[in-house]
């Protein structure tokens, strides 16, 4: 009775956590496109219209944080975080239970580490929220710090949740290599 309820809870949480990760990922993906457009806008405005866009540097920095931290949970979700799992694949054949146990330990440690990051960043966010600190040059272009800290905090929290869900869900089949995600047209 209890294991069934637990299993169901995990499934619901997984769907929820993964859904949020996919949503964040969509936003992060749009930011990549935005990045291409911002930089090109600056190049053209400066070269052709003698009117450089002074916020380009700050917006690019901002976009980088968004791209990395909005996509990171999804990277964790689809198992594309860099790792070398040759050893796990090898023992997975002879000692599948041991391999699964090691995977769970690894995901637990990862969840703890991401939690530490979230805990470390949270006070930064509250400080910046209160002080309304900005970066950039006043009178030229400035951008607030707090959204950056907030995104990092939420991202680390979500990553921790997804790692934790991996511990509770059955281990996936080991993969040797992650191919490009889409089919090239060639």
């Amino acid at each position: 009775m209890v294991p069934a309820a637990l299993k169901k809870t995990v499934t619901v949480l997984s769907t929820l956590g993964n859904g949020v990760a996919i949503g964040a990922n969509v936003v992060g993906t749009l930011v990549v496109l935005g990045l291409v457009l911002i930089v090109n806008y600056d190049v053209v405005a400066r070269g052709v219209f003698n009117a450089p866009f002074h916020g380009a540097v700050e917006l690019v920095q901002f976009s980088m944080v968004l791209v990395v931290f909005l996509q990171l949970p999804d990277v964790v979700r689809v198992n594309r975080l860099t790792r070398s799992d040759g050893f796990l694949a090898v023992i997975g054949h002879s000692r599948p239970k041991l391999a699964a146990a090691i995977r769970h330990v690894i995901d637990t440690v990862s969840a703890i580490f991401m939690t530490l990051i979230a805990v470390a960043i949270w006070p930064e966010f509250t400080d910046m929220w209160e002080s309304k600190d900005y970066f950039g040059v006043p009178g030229v272009f400035t951008a607030p710090w707090w959204p950056i800290k907030l995104v990092i905090f939420l991202s680390a929290t979500l990553c921790a949740v997804i790692f934790a869900l991996k511990v509770l869900s059955p281990a996936p089949r080991p993969e040797r290599v992650r191919l490009p995600e889409h089919e090239d047209t060639e």
């Binding site: 749009l30 990549v32 791209v67 990395v68 990277v75 594309r80 975080l81 047209t185």
Partner: peptide, 25 residues
């Protein structure tokens, strides 16, 4: 005519994944 909107989306998505995993590293 080699780029569909779906292809563009996939390229952006994969760019995001690669960027996130490299820069987190």
């Amino acid at each position: 005519r080699r780029m569909t909107s779906r292809g563009l989306w996939e390229a952006l998505l994969e760019t995001g994944h690669i960027t996130a995993s490299i820069l987190f590293l």
